[in-house]
Amino acid sequence: MTKLCEGHIALVTGGSKGLGRAIAVTLAREGAHVGFNWTKSEAEAKETLAEIEAHGVRGFSFRTSVLDKQGLAAAVKEMEAAVGTVDVLVNNAGVSDVVPLALMDEEDWDRVMDTNVKGTFLATQAVLRGMVKLRRGRILNIGSLAGVKMMQAPVHYCTAKAAIKGFTEALAKEIGRYGITVNNLAPGVLESGVSVNLPKGRLEDYLRHTALGRLGTFQEVAEMAAFLVSDRASYVNGATILVDGAV
């Protein structure tokens, strides 16, 4: 059986660690050339790049923020010159912090909205032109169960993830005619990542309401991501796919 992503060129935002790394490496395992951006840890980025290249594909590591339009454009251009037009984008970069709304500073709000929402917009715009020209592409946004269902999670984070759902649906409608699909992959609570700081009581509450009775893993989400950006998911569009063990 051929690999899921053979022949594709993917950019994963916030791909140096956590879920982003899992997705980037899984796409590489499935045959895609993979680039990713990062801002904080060079060491983690090096590890991720090495894991990608270990699968025999080209890897690209860019130290640039999803809020840096020029940086993103340069990354896309470099990948295009080296391996071809980016036809897969995974908008994974995201941040959160636990702040009740009453105490939330404007800066807190802006930071979460900027990285999660504006970053998705800017990264999408950076690759869109190439995809329209190719008349094919896959855009996969990493949303959250918190953007779909009522959960005890920070208001700005839930707002941002709900925005990602709207972004997905509107964009899917707008660019579907160019053969580009846009989907929203919404994980539930995972073993690591933004959930690690959940208080014990809330974690137990979540587990009680999850059919599988456990937290998910990065790899479980990454496997679904690899399918959704592959040619085999050609009729999945504008969808929000929950990977949450059934809450």
Partner: peptide, 12 residues
């Protein structure tokens, strides 16, 4: 017009 805009966008 949206179609035209995207066409031009891709080939600008």
């Amino acid at each position: 017009l949206q179609d035209v805009l995207y066409d031009v966008y891709a080939r600008q």
